[in-house]
């Protein structure tokens, strides 16, 4: 996973001495964190049994005709 400073160079100014670039950087940083929070929250959702069971059935060859 990327860290919070990761981002394409084209849309992240690296010159934080320029206050305008700095604000832009913090906006992009906020969006980056929100994207990661959104994704991580979904990754942590409990996996439904039907998906686990599906793999078990596949393994048992029950669906090998698929």
């Amino acid at each position: 996973m990327s860290n919070r400073n990761a981002g394409p160079p084209a849309d992240r100014g690296s010159n934080h001495d320029d206050p305008r670039t700095d604000v832009n950087g913090r906006i992009q940083d906020t969006i980056g964190r929100a994207l990661q929070a959104h994704y991580q929250a979904l990754v942590l959702e409990p996996i439904p049994d039907r998906l686990i069971d599906l793999l078990a059935e596949l393994e048992a060859g029950a669906l090998s005709d698929e």
């Binding site: 996973m1 990327s2 991580q40």
Partner: peptide, 8 residues
């Protein structure tokens, strides 16, 4: 955005 920004 998901692939690059969220997953890295």
């Amino acid at each position: 955005l998901i692939m690059v920004g969220a997953m890295g």
